[in-house]
Amino acid sequence: MPQKRKLNYSLALEAPLIIRNSILLLGRCLALTDDDPKVRITRLIFNDFLKMHFRHYADIVVHDEKKLARTGDVVLLRKLRQPLSLEKRHEIIKVVYPLGDITDPLTGKKCVLAKYRSDVQLIDDFYGRAPDAPEGFDYDKAPDRGWQQGKKDWSHKEGYKRWHEFEPSHPLHKDPAAS
């Protein structure tokens, strides 16, 4: 008979219920802060009163030696033999699903939703480009993710409401992450 546990609906108490003693974990990377990255782990937990499963999550701090973590990527975690600190007990092994750059495991081709990129390109070529139009987007020539990070793409930061008018010399003056 499994032990009946009383659920407390606070995030700090839920975390051990979600993480448990599992050696390997799958999670999604959150926006980076100055320190180590955070990973969100979701698990379905059964509610005894409603007789239903509900999705619960726990955000844990992880050790990232190779600096693999990027926001939105699904990563594989492993439990450390000796915890580095009270919070840091897991490390990132590899990136399983990079965000917006997924490969089909059967054929090894790149996908856009449920279509292959090559198929999409084929249809576009069939219609053709407008006369005297400049060169469009090409998957092969396009660089990998991250060339706009910190320039025009600020999704790697945590968004917040602007709360103070900083001086022009301050690094937070006209911060693009604030809105």
């Binding site: 939105g72 856009v112 987007f137 060339w147 706009q148 025009k152 793409d153 600020w154 693009p176």
Partner: peptide, 27 residues
């Protein structure tokens, strides 16, 4: 961004747009 990250970044450069992260903590 979720579907096609490469095209997303290319489009930001072409249209000269700034992509700001979502504000989660309101109030």
């Amino acid at each position: 961004r979720r579907i096609d990250y490469k095209r997303f970044e290319w489009l930001l450069e072409k249209l000269n747009l700034l992509y700001k992260p979502r504000v989660l903590k309101g109030g």
